[in-house]
């Protein structure tokens, strides 16, 4: 069947102002927009811009395709909108509703304009329906991407923040570990520690696990790997901050830590490190009295 060209673009173009007025009225009535920090004037501007872009693009094509350059402008606008709504505290479904809510005014307008041509009406309805669905889903996708970007950035920051290597004494480094050790973090910890060993020329590293909530076989394996790597480079490691429960867990799991010096507290480990380097801390008052 050789169908006539779609009537949708012409109708949207022609009744753009009425559709916009109706749409804004519906949105304001629904109260959906109040969920976030959005001004009424901004809602009007955005609605106007969206419908303008939509009407313009419809002149060229009625099939949404995210990769098609014809949709670039509208896509750009929606991405921007989605991101700003995300920061304003809207939920993804509320962002998508912004697009979906346009259906009602357009359907109403189509029904009036094509009242005598049921076939053309059905076609136009179908077109606008598919199109707005695709655009609505697109906003959700962008919203999700924006959230994921935030999450991954925070994850990176967390990893960087959580691996400080401090110099306790010339030649003695300490690595206070806080939080759960997973493979990725251990990799960063290992690299940071080894690089600092080279940079400072330190021969002893104290790994303090006071802040590590649980030690399982995997964590222990990660620790032992770090210790072996440091030993290969010519540095000794001392593991400190082993809490009573963790000592029990280690033994119950049958983990062999006998290759590494272990101490209950950081100060004990520091004392051992000083001893290995041939240093001692003495009381100056005692010396003065003596």
């Amino acid at each position: 069947m050789n169908r006539l060209a779609s009537r949708l673009p012409a109708i949207v173009e022609q009744h753009q102002r009425e559709i916009l007025a109706e749409w804004v009225r519906l949105q304001l009535e629904s109260g959906n927009w109040r969920a976030g920090r959005l001004q009424e004037s901004q809602l009007r501007d955005e609605s106007q811009k969206f419908i303008g872009l939509l009407a313009g693009t419809l002149q060229n094509t009625v099939q949404f395709d995210a990769r098609n350059a014809q949709w670039a402008e509208l896509r750009e606008f929606l991405s921007e909108l989605s991101r700003s709504r995300a920061t304003q505290g809207f939920s993804p479904s509320q962002v998508a509703t912004f697009v979906f809510s346009l259906k009602q005014p357009i359907f109403g307008r189509l029904r009036l304009a094509l009242a005598k041509e049921p076939e053309a009406l059905a076609d136009a309805m179908w077109e606008i329906n598919t199109l707005l669905d695709a655009l609505g889903l697109y906003t959700t996708e962008v919203y999700q991407q924006a959230r994921e970007a935030v999450i991954s950035r925070q994850q990176e920051e967390l990893i960087e923040l959580s691996t400080p290597v401090v110099e306790l004494w010339p030649g003695i480094l300490a690595l206070p570990l806080i939080g759960t050790l997973d493979s990725e973090r251990t990799q960063v910890v290992m690299e940071t520690l080894l690089q600092r060993l080279v940079a400072t020329g330190s021969s002893i590293a104290v790994i303090d696990i006071t802040g590590v909530p649980t030690v399982d076989t995997l964590v222990a394996q990660h620790l032992l790997k770090t210790v072996s790597a440091a030993q290969l480079m010519g540095a000794d490691c001392i593991i400190s901050g082993i809490r009573p429960q963790i000592a029990q867990t280690i033994v119950h799991l049958g983990i062999d830590l006998s290759a590494v010096a272990t101490k209950a507290s950081l100060s004990d480990a520091f004392a051992l490190a000083l001893k290995r380097r041939g240093l001692a801390v003495t009381s100056s008052t005692a010396a003065a009295r003596g």
Partner: peptide
């Protein structure tokens, strides 16, 4: 002597 961190990690 002088093993680089990356080399040590690889060997482990």
């Amino acid at each position: 002597v002088g093993m680089q961190p990356a080399v040590a990690i690889t060997l482990v």
